[in-house]
């Protein structure tokens, strides 16, 4: 990592235990992790934080992850922002929906920590 500034990840998720797990893994890998658990205000939070990467859960209170992603893609500032989508529902149609809207990657819960790290690294590098 050297002297580079730590890359910034915004995690939008509402399950406290999952937030804690991802934060732990990514922090250990040298990432700066911010979290937000409300769908309603997530867009503004992302806009304000201007992260390198967003990890977005589909099932959120207030607004669904899909809606948030769609709005991110419509805004010039976040048009190309890498977004990793997480879902616990795991049906193929969820994956299709995510890809159509423009998710950079799609992961089904539960995932292994290595998988998560690799995906985050890939997306941030690109």
């Amino acid at each position: 990592m050297g002297g580079e500034m730590a890359k910034h990840v915004m995690l939008v998720e509402d399950e406290p235990n999952i937030i804690e797990a991802i934060r732990f893994i990514l922090t250990r890998d040298g990432w700066r992790v911010d979290t937000h658990s409300d769908g309603q205000t997530a867009i503004d939070a992302i806009g304000a934080a201007n992260p390198d990467l967003v990890i977005l859960d589909v099932m959120l209170p207030g607004r669904s992850g899909y809606e948030i992603l769609q709005e991110l893609r419509e805004r010039p500032a976040t048009e190309g922002l890498p977004v990793l989508m997480l879902t616990a529902r795991g049906q193929t149609k969820d994956r299709e929906t995510a890809e159509r809207i423009g998710a950079s990657r799609f992961m089904t819960k539960p995932f292994s920590n290595a998988e998560m790290l690799e995906a985050v690294r890939d997306l941030a590098r690109a």
Binding site: A21, I25, A88, F111
Partner: peptide
């Protein structure tokens, strides 16, 4: 089911 399992697996 997957939500608690995610926490369990991660931890």
């Amino acid at each position: 089911l997957r939500t608690p399992m995610t926490s369990i697996r991660a931890f």
